[in-house]
Design a protein around this nucleic acid. Sequence first.
DNA 1: CCGCATCCGGGGCGATACTG
DNA 2: CAGTATCGCCCCGGATGCGG
Lengths: 228, 228
Amino acid sequence: MRSYGQYCAVAKSLDVLGDRWTLLIVRELLLTDQLRYTDLRNGLPGIATNLLADRLRELEAAGVIARVEAPPPVATTLFSLTDRGRRLRPILDALGRWGVPYMTEGPADGDVFRSEWLSWPAEVFLSDHRPEDPPVTIELHVGEQPLLLETVEGAVRSRVPEAAERADATLAGSPHAVLGLLSGRIDLDRARELGVVYEGDPAVLERVCPTHPEAGFDGLSADALPSL
Amino acid sequence: MRSYGQYCAVAKSLDVLGDRWTLLIVRELLLTDQLRYTDLRNGLPGIATNLLADRLRELEAAGVIARVEAPPPVATTLFSLTDRGRRLRPILDALGRWGVPYMTEGPADGDVFRSEWLSWPAEVFLSDHRPEDPPVTIELHVGEQPLLLETVEGAVRSRVPEAAERADATLAGSPHAVLGLLSGRIDLDRARELGVVYEGDPAVLERVCPTHPEAGFDGLSADALPSL
DNA sequence: CCGCATCCGGGGCGATACTG
DNA sequence: CAGTATCGCCCCGGATGCGG
């Protein structure tokens, strides 16, 4: 990217990160530690292959990602974040938190979806109301692959589960309906009408879901959002 | 900006903020509450006037900024952030914090500079080591206009000072030298050799500056930064 | 002056095809 | 699987013009 030519920390960051697709590549690598070129391509629907190659080169030159030649039997190149790349998490989290209101009204026409992307709304909306109790996990089945939510230190974190990992409860349904439930905009009964399936102790869900009258989310509701 | 077409909070944010110059316009409005078109143009060296007009329209449509028609004697349109726009501060702060290492090696050739941009390095590097004592202020004279640092709740915040506001100490010099002092990379004696002028009780500066062997800044030193 | 609109050249980007 | 090559378009940068 052409430099802004400003001796300013924000501008310097944008010199490195401001190109189209760059931060979404970082998002993919924050959600899944190591990815192949093809995995990135699949996780970034719409990116042109030459752009992906360009961005990966630039990010490597900037010290944000590293290329690892995996030994057999994998025998392919894997991309992962460097330490400096992992320090981008606060930026992505801030962007995610600010963008959550744009999700609560449902996907726009033609939007694609991957369940890992629920990571940000889940961590923003949910919290552990009984942090002293033993931790619990909930498995989300929303897109192609599941997402695991777990209570940790009073908050809720998400990650891609290991194979055959069992959770205390499972929640399945459409992205919009599951998000409505997680945000506290609708309750479980209403969610079920929208096709949501919840299996497990209801107390597990209640433990992490927002208290019902959508409270104190610091302007995270979609109300008063411009039409775009 | 063309939408990424992804039902993801990060992508939705970038749909609104990802265009070139957009976040730098927000930066200007976070640093100074209300700005005229011409002020923005001056604060964003290099931006084309049509792009500035485009971005302001887009940001207004997105509900991030608002246009205020100032009454006489000002008689001009002022731009300011909405509530939603002010919630972008965590994003800018995260970008600023990540970008600080790119500043510690000095400005690149042709970089322009404005003293307000020292806001991020100052808040990242400085802290109040004696939060129980009465608050102190330091006035930075680095660029055209001064920047005021003040201790608040154990941290150091910065803002553009009111006219004729007096600080407990003043610090003047080149951006690179002042930044070296603020980051703890050089001490006051060395800074003075580089043309820095400090007036006031040395204890004021020591109270906020990092303890000398550049300690624990979470990878914020410029070491091991790629050449770009 | 202030707040833009218009025009125009160049390059970043999007889509597809092709290759070691 | 991991890219390169190509082509059109549109975004961006820079200059100028223009009404209030």
